[in-house]
């Protein structure tokens, strides 16, 4: 639920409320990560590193459901719908364009909620490895999660062997989104 400002509020206030909306969303990703079987048996340092490099990408997957690529609108959890044009005024134009494209491609795969959740777990443990201490343990967890996702999807759609590879092709898209945007968007933190 991230209400974007009515015109009466300054852009700083808009950014403040947007940044504050991010905090609960990030905390939810941390709780989600802790629920991934095997994640908490990783070194705590590695858990933190994966979260730091993967949370933005997981959020991008989660936010996809807010985007309507056909109508080019975003509907926040509080029900407020905004057109791409009105959101562009906040200066997030290029991220929004990228998000619309990404959510269109992901949406076309028609994943079930449990497949989407398993995909987000794969996204998190596939995040950047720099700074990871026990790479082998992370790689093993990633392999297990990919195996689980593949068997869930092939069990459900035995005659469609293209869907899983198409899904994995979204991982590089997410990495690009992360590289292009997570260190550009500014946030305000109030201490």
């Amino acid at each position: 639920a991230c209400p974007v400002a009515p015109s009466s509020r300054s852009s700083q206030e808009v950014w403040e409320s947007f940044s504050q909306c991010f905090t609960p969303a990030v905390k939810e990703v941390v709780e989600f990560a802790k629920s991934i079987p095997g994640f908490q048996s990783l070194e705590q340092h590695d858990q933190v590193m994966l979260l730091k490099s993967g949370t933005f990408q997981v959020l991008m997957v989660r936010f996809c459901s807010l985007f309507d690529p056909k109508e080019r609108t975003v509907t926040f959890l509080n029900g407020q719908t905004y057109s791409l044009a009105s959101l562009r005024a906040l200066g997030m134009g290029c991220l929004l364009d990228a998000m619309f494209d990404f959510s269109e491609k992901l949406g076309q795969l028609g994943l079930e909620p449990d497949e989407m959740a398993l995909f987000m777990a794969v996204v998190l443990v596939s995040a950047d490895r720099s700074g990871i201490v026990e790479v082998a343990a992370v790689e093993q967890l990633q392999e297990n999660l990919i195996k689980a996702l593949r068997s869930l999807m092939s069990h459900r759609r035995p005659d469609d062997s293209t869907l899983f590879p198409k899904l994995l092709l979204r991982l590089p898209d997410l990495r690009t989104l992360n590289i292009q945007h997570s260190d550009k968007l500014l946030a305000f933190r109030i201490d």
Partner: peptide, 25 residues
């Protein structure tokens, strides 16, 4: 008084994660 700090979203995310793990130590 409220002090505002401007940072990248990546740093904002890192800060929240660090705080969460520190709190659950």
């Amino acid at each position: 008084p409220k002090t505002h700090r401007v940072m990248t979203l990546a740093d904002h995310i890192s800060h929240i994660i660090t705080q969460d793990f520190a709190r659950n130590q």
